[in-house]
């Protein structure tokens, strides 16, 4: 299976011992990936970067308490990132509704529509690309997130299941649903 650059086997022990060089190599490998993943949820790259930094700071402080073994490390980090991103978004919902005077609905946070793009961005996009993008955008967010983890990060079904806190069967269902929708656009 295509699980990306192997993180050194003894990395976890070294980090647990407070070895900052080991932590740096984990950071360099994973921070950009986690930030990209978080951006999918929160949309604002600057906020995603802040969340990523905070996550790595908190993880370092709690390094003695990590409940993870080396093979599960990537999935563990993505799961932490996902939780942070969802929490941040729930916070936004609360803030928004506070301003709007509407009650926050935490479930809504899972199905926020893609934020509209400015018109000029749309115009310059190629047509074929546009069709695919439309289908992608129309997919349920969970489908897109599973695809991101699979295609961009090369995570296995089991790892995606771990990150998204669902079963492997659930992952398969999500991907199957997403692919069915995309098939029409692929031709």
């Amino acid at each position: 299976m295509s699980s990306t650059t192997p993180l050194a086997a003894d990395l976890l022990q070294r980090i647990a011992r407070g070895d900052s060089t080991a932590y740096e190599s984990l950071y360099r490998e994973m921070a950009p990936r986690l930030c990209a993943y978080i951006t999918r949820y929160v949309r604002d790259p600057a906020e995603a970067a802040d969340l990523t930094q905070q996550l790595f700071l908190d993880l370092w402080i709690d390094r003695a308490k990590w409940k993870v073994t080396a093979p599960g490390l990537r999935a563990y980090l993505f799961r932490c990132a996902r939780n942070r991103a969802l929490n941040a978004r729930r916070r936004h919902r609360v803030e928004d509704s506070w301003q709007d005077g509407v009650n926050a609905d935490p479930d809504q946070a899972h199905s926020l529509p893609a934020s509209p793009e400015p018109a000029d961005v749309k115009v310059i996009r190629l047509e074929a690309e546009d069709a695919l993008q439309r289908v992608l955008d129309a997919l349920p967010e969970r489908c897109r997130m599973a695809m991101h983890l699979r295609w961009k990060e090369g995570l296995s079904y089991a790892e995606v299941a771990e990150v998204m806190e669902i079963t492997e069967k659930g992952v398969e269902k999500l991907l199957g649903r997403g692919m069915a929708a995309l098939r029409a656009a692929i031709g």
Partner: peptide, 26 residues
């Protein structure tokens, strides 16, 4: 189109600068 599809998924921000980030975090 399949190549494009992959690119669409892959496009997620490449803007995060791990060097700069680490220097702020460290």
């Amino acid at each position: 189109r399949v190549a494009q599809l992959r690119t669409q998924v892959d496009r997620a921000n490449a803007l995060f600068d791990a060097h700069q980030g680490w220097q702020q975090l460290a």
